[in-house]
Simulated assay, not measured.
Amino acid sequence: MASTKIFAAEFVCGGGFRQRNVAAIPKPLRDEGTAMLKALSADLSALGEVIVPLDLRVDVELPPGVRAFPIDASLPLWSQWIAAAQDCDAAIIVAPEHSGALAQAVAMMRAGAVDPVMSSGDFLRIASDKWETARAFASQLVPHPPTFSIATIDSIDPNLANQWIMKPRDGVGSERFVITDDLEAAKAQLQADSVLQPYISGLPASISLIVSGTQMHLLPAVSQVIDPHTGEYLGGSGPLDQDLQRRATALATRAIEAMPPMAKGFIGIDLILGEDARDDCVVEINPRLTTSYVGLRHMVEGNLAEWILGQGTGPIRCKVSAGEVRWTPDGQVWHGSESLEVC
């Protein structure tokens, strides 16, 4: 029987910046993209032959058995991805929402007769836009930081918060992320493609889920380490304790129920967990693989990639105690004091 062939593409490593000097690629994007690609392709390689589009200028040591498809900087990117994936049985894409890259990648692949295991339709459109996500949550009373656009900033109560966060509607990570205590300056600087939110104190956390058909599998909730001055993601640890797990699960369920249909594959949900459950809120939805995957894969029984591809059976079970696994954005992982192999 022929081996299953799986296409796995990550935007930064897969040529998304092929026409830019590699040194100009933001380090957080390069580190996290490389970490996700190596972890995902390692798990997929246990299920079949893996083909990865690769910008050879990006320093990526692929896991054994994973085959690189070199990207030509002079040719259109999506046509090269389609060519690499043409004979594959399954495809997974990791790309940023910024400038519509993720939505465009999914649409172009499907137009090229490649159907990636990714969300689509209104779910992808709304989850990729922080303003539209806020509107969806508000309509269904999902706890969420008050969110203002350039059209609604005049309605802001200045007593709502002492600090404010300004970020792009389609931003990724800490890109154009500004924390300020000067509300008037923030209002003056706010652009049509950005939103303004009050700074919410609490524990930054995330919970991921895998949607396959009618099944939704929730993964262990984890904490995030976020630089309080820049918003930069510095890693995470998990799983959270049982009480916080219950609270995160309840929030994630409400968030997904508030969204349109067409969720599919791996989805990450960012949260703030307060001192009390009444202060918990959902920050945003990431309709794609997130960096937490590098740690989550060491917390659960079995191979997460099986569930992403719809091949997993039964519930996904956590196999470690609270806080045992931690990781950095570049993919270094520890289980307790033991450093695990970087994929």
Rank of each mutant, 00 (worst) to 15 (best):
48 G>Y: 11
181 D>Y: 06
336 G>F: 00
295 G>T: 14
36 M>G: 09
113 A>Y: 05
236 G>Y: 01
122 D>E: 15
266 F>K: 03
305 A>R: 02
215 Q>P: 01
24 A>G: 04
293 Y>E: 01
152 T>K: 08
315 P>N: 04
306 E>L: 06
186 A>E: 00
325 V>A: 12
227 D>E: 05
165 I>R: 00
172 V>M: 15
77 L>T: 12
158 P>F: 09
165 I>K: 00
15 G>Y: 09
84 A>L: 07
5 K>S: 15
45 S>F: 10
315 P>C: 02
139 S>P: 06
137 F>T: 02
261 P>K: 07
275 E>G: 15
97 E>P: 06
293 Y>P: 03
272 I>M: 15
109 M>L: 15
106 V>H: 14
83 A>H: 12
206 S>H: 11
58 V>G: 04
280 D>A: 02
193 D>F: 11
219 L>K: 11
124 L>H: 06
117 V>P: 06
267 I>G: 05
114 V>S: 09
93 I>N: 03
43 D>N: 10
319 K>D: 07
193 D>V: 07
242 Q>I: 04
14 G>M: 03
166 M>K: 14
212 S>H: 08
22 V>W: 03
198 P>A: 10
267 I>M: 06
136 A>L: 15
83 A>C: 10
127 A>N: 12
99 S>Y: 15
312 G>A: 01
224 Q>W: 05
251 L>F: 07
293 Y>R: 01
95 A>K: 09
343 C>W: 13
11 F>N: 03
48 G>D: 12
37 L>C: 13
77 L>F: 13
20 R>E: 13
64 P>W: 01
195 V>S: 10
180 T>D: 02
258 A>W: 08
312 G>S: 00
204 P>D: 09
18 R>T: 05
64 P>K: 04
129 D>C: 08
153 I>P: 01
250 A>Q: 07
168 P>L: 09
103 A>C: 06
71 I>W: 07
100 G>P: 14
308 I>G: 01
5 K>Q: 15
159 N>C: 07
57 R>D: 09
54 L>P: 11
188 A>K: 08
108 M>I: 02
121 G>M: 08
262 M>I: 06
278 R>W: 05
251 L>Y: 05
133 T>I: 05
314 G>S: 10
191 Q>Y: 02
71 I>A: 04
28 P>A: 00
23 A>P: 01
308 I>S: 01
56 L>N: 15
135 R>C: 14
309 L>M: 06
164 W>M: 02
141 L>D: 14
51 I>G: 08
89 D>T: 01
4 T>M: 15
